[in-house]
Amino acid sequence: MSRGSFRRLIGLIRLYALLISAAVRAKMQYKFDFVTSTLLESLMGAYDYMVALAALWRFHTVAGWNIYEVGLLYSVSKIGWGLYRTFLEEVDRFEGYIVRGDYDSILVRPYPSLFVLASRNFALERLSFVIQGAAVMVISLKGLLASGVLSLASVFHLLLAIVWTTLLFSAVGIATSAAAFVIVRIEELQVFTQNATSTASLYPLEIYPAWLRNMLLYVIPLGVGNYIPVRYLLGKGGTWLNLAVPAVVALLSIMLAVWLWRLGETRYHSTGS
């Protein structure tokens, strides 16, 4: 990296910090709203996990995965989803920008539009997903490390898996929101590409019919982020490639998503004044 581009990167990070601190300060003007939405988010997430737990206690294992192993899958996906929502909340809520025509003011800034968009919010309330996922991960790791199924080296790979999962959720989110440039309303599309798939990716893919499994691996590859590496780390098959493939797929997905975003941008309609 040349000196110039390094300085540019540092400048960008400083600007990002400044922008999100402004966004958070603005949000704190409405503390009640913040507190209630965080609480509700956590409660709903906890409820989600309770349901899964109840099912597991009943059957002890799901498709050969015990409760700690499912917990590992669950937590990687949940943390990845939480980080995506925390950093890219405005991408997720992009429909509103198109409907109101607010994207105009993003485009007159001298920075990449996704950067400007993302820096308008740092969704602290979405960290509840991360906290919830982390709690499940700690419980699962305790169980698995004690039984010797996992080594400390695998913990490092799990952290990497979280990074790839976050990137994959981001790629799916960006690509879905890019559709709003053309079709404006994307809520239903998001249910299909994000909500349904992120829920599905919480559990071992073995429990799904082949078409859904294939979709989660090849079309909306959220399963590549957690299932592929976790499966190998737990000794359920696969090779070291299970650790490398997620990185490649995640980076390619992000590139494809950003390309789609740029393509969509050329079709941006704005709104009348």
């Binding site: 300060r25 603005a26 001298p110």
Partner: peptide, 22 residues
């Protein structure tokens, strides 16, 4: 676009470019 953004100023009467709550 990004280079040009440094050389132009834009005001949309109907839409704020300021940080509303700050």
């Amino acid at each position: 676009r990004q280079d040009l953004a440094r050389r132009i100023g834009v005001v949309f009467g109907q839409r704020t470019q300021l940080w509303w709550d700050l």
